[in-house]
Write a protein that binds this DNA or RNA. Structure first.
Lengths: 117, 117
DNA sequence: GTATTACATCGACAGAAGTGATTGTTATTG
DNA sequence: CAATAACAATCACTTCTGTCGATGTAATAC
């Protein structure tokens, strides 16, 4: 697939002169990139992505035991995935009696979403 | 942080009767989730995220040797990250003489971006 | 009290991933 | 031709990640 922008070819440097100085720089700084990459990494698993999909449209409606049969994984593994989502700041939970209700933290996905758009 | 929706608490099941049937389901199916998770995973590294940030605003302008000094990693490691982005279908490259020009594939991020929004 | 249920934590394991030194490949220069 | 430059590929190493079985904990039911 060709690209639609003009290439700006370089000429070979004279011997001894090292490669090009950078001419462009990232717009997102390092700290921002680390934050967004952490969120992206947490979403980088199909099960976690579907979990977030369920949770953000049914906050407070589903307990963990209802989530387990949605995926072909064991309960400890699901618990682990929820932990990873929590560590990334994407979800949090509330306990009511025997049941735990997870929900997506509002605006947790906003920075990444804005950058992607 | 409390949630703003009403919880729908369950009552304990009678002995022997196993846990709740799922009442809600993901809206994104498995195949879709695998695709998007693959993209998210590739973005789940600060360097790769900044790489995409540079490339999508300067397609065809930067050769790899200009990218190396932007990050504190070796050239083979940068090459490895570019390979991962390519494997995820996010970027592709074109060779011109000694130089390789990477660019972000149009719409490669669209599905994930749309789901996040 | 005991039994049971929902969920978390721990331990272990295989496979994936990030890193760099070294080597290989291709193209340009002289 | 030889020398050099840009980039990719290989190898080795360490750390991280997904998975499950077993165990632990807290709450409810009897």
């Amino acid at each position: 697939m060709p690209i639609d922008r003009e290439l700006t070819p370089k000429t070979k440097r004279p011997p001894g002169e090292r490669c090009c100085e950078p001419v462009v720089y990232p717009e997102v700084d390092r700290v921002q990139a680390i934050r967004m990459a952490e969120v992206a990494k947490a979403l980088g698993d199909p099960i976690r992505l579907q979990l977030v999909d369920v949770l953000r449209r049914h906050a407070g409606e589903v307990c963990v035991c209802e989530l387990v049969p949605l995926f072909e994984i064991s309960q400890p593994t699901l618990s682990h995935h929820l932990n990873r989502l929590r560590a990334a700041g994407i979800v949090d939970s509330e306990r009511r009696g025997l049941w735990a209700y997870y929900y997506v933290i509002p605006d947790a996905l906003r920075e990444l979403s804005a950058w992607l758009a």
